[in-house]
Design a protein around this nucleic acid. Structure first.
Lengths: 345, 345
DNA sequence: CCTAGGTGGGAATGCGCTTTCCAAGGTAGT
DNA sequence: ACTACCTTGGAAAGCGCATTCCCACCTAGG
């Protein structure tokens, strides 16, 4: 038994207008910020009627009439990845209390699904599209074309973590931060390095590795190995295992392994431990991103702190502003922990 | 320079109809699964025209005309929490390739924002609303009322992880799984237990603790402490610290600490370690949820595996089906790892 | 050869709301 | 007291699409 009205059919603006004895136009004007403010006495009648009937505006109809949907689309590779879920949380904060809703799509790094997601968002006439995470940059011609059309039609697009020529957004200084980390590790006395590069078709992974190795070379140090692999926990696990198998990691000669992201570092630690090597005495490990659980590891692991949530927030705010999306670059900074303690320290 | 059309204004169905030399009705029929299939020759003309113009249906208009939005809303406490992001990922899988889009809202466990989210989803006429995570059950009268109205109007609602009298969904057998874990730990020989109960106003935390402690008592074992605290990593850290301070955890007398969730277990491990106690010899630790990084901890930590993603997927599928949402209960099972190795084993 | 039934395309209506545009009433200025 | 202007509420025209009718045409059956 509904306390208010029958069931099955939603109450419309026209219903509350009739109930209040005014025209739909007037009801519309009072129930949402129009430039024209009806008289207070009338406005009250309308509000009371809306309240009594339990009126909810139909956002679809509003979107159609106003030509703006109050929707923002976010595309990530994998929402279950802490990297992206932190960003997603930030984005939502950035959107603020404007009643804008977030449309989320995880694409599993599949260009097809990415394109499908962009198209779906276009169909839903989202006010903006946020793209997080780097992509292979190839083959994305269709994606770029779709985004361009979207922008032509007034859509805003912001990239997160990966630059795009035609759009603003907030980028990471991956190379710079990786270089800073290398610098710190050198200062600590490390001289023997191995690099788990992840998937080098990803700009993010590439930049990190280049920044790190570049700094090493500046100091006259050449890594004993730079190995590619999946940009995931399992990628780290397997690649690190290979390193041990190949004799590059061994007891008694501390080698510092730089992993292109934190989850790879986690896999690396387990792989190394399973083979009987000690952390950090035989193998020192450093990651990148500073995902939440990292500080609770044993030994706690060195990484580069990226203000993921902050980045998401900035991107969210960015698309809420007028004008073209700006371009921002934020940088991470090294966080030194136990996992890179030099032997004899 | 657009390769296709001018800019600024999206191409409408009427445009492609004109281009193809047919009526809007016909164009509509060919461009989406209508029961009436126009002749193949005509259909081709329309498809070609749509392609050439780069037509995208306006989902808002479709929603209005069809009275169904192709949107599903998901409400979580915190999308950056692995518990919820895993569920979110599953939900998206469950939604499948039906072109349904996911509307996401993180409420930070704030009943006000939860209510606002439900209202927003109602406004957007989402086809279904999924609510994940337990809530305090009090004060939620307004929420329940809103959901009831939503259902009256044909909306589907499914709860994830927390039962609700009036709605289907998929629940966790928290108590049962916790009891199973207790059983395993007893079999391992543990006899001295402490419980970090988290926030007992949360049904989830309560059920887990009750299940665990109940099984202990069945075996004639009374925990040395059951402490409440925040249901978070920091909650675990602080509560565990208190336990040490109070002399309940000490070297040489292994105590098994059951934490109501995994992140609390992480905090506990760090707290215990900082105070010089050894894991698992002085303090054994068990968590709940099996978040991804847990197996890479050292020692790897015992927990209860909850098929989070699976649960999300089931809920997603559920709301895509016809008929009322079913009620499903899934159970977790204990995963024994190094952190609960009994001393002398 | 005529008619009943079926097929396929188009005109028109409506989904629920916003926003011109219009008209009526009120205010001020001369 | 009369015109000019501003205010305010309402009527009506869309927003872009789906869908119900309707009608013209075609096939088959008697």
């Amino acid at each position: 038994m509904a306390a208010t009205e029958g069931n099955g059919v939603a109450v419309r603006l026209a219903d509350v207008a009739r109930e209040a004895g005014v025209s739909p136009a007037t009801a519309s004007r009072v129930l949402n910020g129009s430039s024209r403010k009806p008289a207070e006495e009338i406005a009250d009648r309308v509000r009371v009627a809306a309240q009594r009937l339990g009126y909810f505006p139909n956002a679809q109809a509003q979107a159609l009439a106003r030509n703006t949907a109050g929707l923002v689309g976010l595309i990530v590779h994998d929402i279950a990845d802490p990297y992206f879920s932190s960003i997603a949380r930030g984005v939502q904060q950035g959107l603020g209390e404007n009643g804008v809703q977030l449309l989320l799509n995880s694409t599993g790094r599949d260009p097809q699904r990415e394109l499908a997601a962009v198209r779906a968002f276009m169909s839903h006439r989202t006010d903006a599209i946020l793209l997080a995470g780097s992509r292979s940059q190839q083959e994305d011609h269709e994606l770029m074309e779709a985004l361009r059309r979207y922008q032509d039609n007034g859509g805003r697009v912001a990239m997160i973590g990966q630059p795009l020529p035609a759009a603003g957004g907030v980028q990471l200084d991956n190379a710079g931060a990786a270089a800073a980390l290398a610098d710190e590790l050198l200062k600590l006395g490390h001289r023997r390095f191995a690099v788990l590069a992840g998937d080098q078709s990803l700009a993010t992974a590439r930049d990190r590795v280049e920044g790190f190795v570049g700094k090493l070379r500046d100091a006259g140090v050449e890594p004993v190995a730079v190995r590619e692999g999946a940009f995931t926990r399992d990628g780290g696990y397997h690649t690190a295992g290979d390193l041990v198998r190949d004799g590059l990691l061994e007891a008694g000669r501390q080698t510092c392994v730089f992993c292109a992201n934190d989850v790879m570092a986690l896999g690396t630690m387990t792989a190394v431990r399973e083979r009987g090597l000690r952390l950090p005495d035989d193998v020192a490990v450093a990651g990148f991103d500073d995902i939440p659980t990292l500080g609770d590891m044993f030994p706690s692991v060195t990484t580069v702190r990226i203000p993921l949530e902050e980045i998401g927030r900035m991107a969210g705010e960015m698309v809420m502003e007028d004008g073209d999306a700006r371009r921002l670059v934020v940088s991470g900074h090294p966080v030194l922990r136990e996992s890179t303690r030099p032997v004899g320290a």
